[in-house]
Write a protein that binds this DNA or RNA. Structure first.
Lengths: 254, 254
DNA sequence: AGAAGGACCAGTGGTCCGTA
DNA sequence: AGAAGGACCAGTGGTCCGTA
């Protein structure tokens, strides 16, 4: 139904950036500031030791159909050939199309619907072939999407905004209100994205804190992994709430 | 209920084998005979190129509590220290305890029940901690079992006999009859294991060929991955059957 | 010959951080 | 400063094959 209205949005243009040489070594820089996320987390430890250099010589893929300019031989400056990158998102109201070199949030959510369609195709293929059938949007699905020409779909982006899409699915009114409020205040996408966590945590609170169950109960959401951050926020909030009077629904003992 | 009757079986003893040095290099040997499995398969190709040598220096684990004899320094012969290995399985009737340095099939199936209990414990812990909760017996569960002292449980063994356990769960009468027949004929465990595929494929044939659905419909089976081989046999048999008159139940177009 | 399981490998989930 | 995404890494599913 609403898929048609959104199709036009996927025609939007791309940014360009010059191709650079891959092997460039970066001088090791220190650990930098950490505090965007106040609560939770704990796992970054082993990440601190990661400071590796050097590049893998890639290319495990079986049959790529991409074109490659063999042009960048020399050392120096401006690259030859162009690598494309999607326009950045801006906070838009429902139904609003982004102007200029920007993409709107309806377009963002449309990408999730597209991934779902790619998953369904991968599932059909797997069943025909008698192979294991994925139930979630996996690496295999992202690879399939890329081969099908949807190069603007990639894993880091889709994972980054999953919880925003979740709010859109689970409580469209709240999602829409949030978009309008953040647009009005002139907030950037990052701030809007952050704000999407809270209503989801509240929703989990009302439903026994089981965020997995909430995702799985919704047909368009069950195919997405629950984001680590959202899971952690629910857990932290649940711990804060334990024993307090605000607990009014099902809550198993910790 | 029947778990108690089987508990005694888990007290059975172990075989011993001398510990050998790890780093020993084996002379590369050719590809060897391939024909045990008649049907299906296709994937061994990339495996042929694997002929690697050298050893990883292991030890990613966080906190092991095992004892290590620091005794094997030299080059030569008989090892110091003993490494234990489970007694091999023999085909036993239901209720029969294996004699001598052997284990029976009730004991084998009991191991699957134990894995299920370990999974349930891992799930409880994950929920307490607000972490991702496994729905299947994963590496994490095998690691947990090992730390809990169940060193006789390991992944290759459990995966090897999953379909035998599946038959036991799904059609105990057929499973029991098969055990009695193979014991009487003096067949070895490998032959019995092979024979367990067929009744499962027949069962799948009667239920629209969806072996995943069959596993998922059974509470003790849904936690196990469908074995690749079983999936392939179902697919091959389905392909053979297409268009023939023996198709009597639901079957989506291929 | 038959069998148990250590140890390996390709490809996964997850997301950092070099890039613009 | 804000953001998109290539590319990396730890740990997974899967099972081979050196071992006895």
């Amino acid at each position: 139904a609403d898929a048609n209205a959104l199709d036009a949005l996927s025609q939007e243009g791309l940014s360009e950036e010059p191709v650079q040489q891959q092997e460039k070594e970066a001088a090791g820089s220190g650990g930098g500031g950490g505090g965007l996320w106040e609560a939770v987390v704990e796992r970054k430890k082993s990440r601190q030791q990661r400071r590796r250099k050097g590049a893998r010589s890639g290319g495990k893929e079986e049959e790529e159909e991409e074109e490659e300019d063999e042009e960048n031989g020399g050392g120096g400056g401006g690259g030859v050939g162009e690598r494309q990158r999607e326009h950045p998102f801006i906070v838009t109201e429902p139904g609003e199309v982004a102007r200029g070199k920007k993409n709107g949030l309806d377009y963002l959510f449309h990408l999730y619907e597209q991934c779902r369609e790619f998953l369904i195709q991968v599932q059909s293929l797997a069943k025909e072939r008698g192979e294991k059938c994925p139930t979630k949007v996996t690496n295999q699905v992202f690879r399939y999407a890329k081969k099908a020409g949807a190069s603007y779909i990639n894993k880091p982006k889709m994972r980054h905004y999953v919880h925003c899409y979740a709010l859109h699915c689970l409580d469209e009114d709240t999602s829409n209100a949030l978009r309008r409020a953040f647009k009005e205040r002139g907030e950037n996408v990052g701030a809007w994205r952050q704000a999407c966590y809270k209503p989801l945590v509240s929703m989990a609170a009302r439903q026994g804190w089981d965020i997995d169950a909430i995702f799985n109960a919704h047909p368009r959401l069950t195919i997405w992994y629950v984001p680590t951050k959202l899971r952690q926020l629910c857990h932290a909030e649940r711990s804060n709430t334990i024993g307090s009077a605000s607990v009014t629904t099902v809550q198993p003992p910790i």
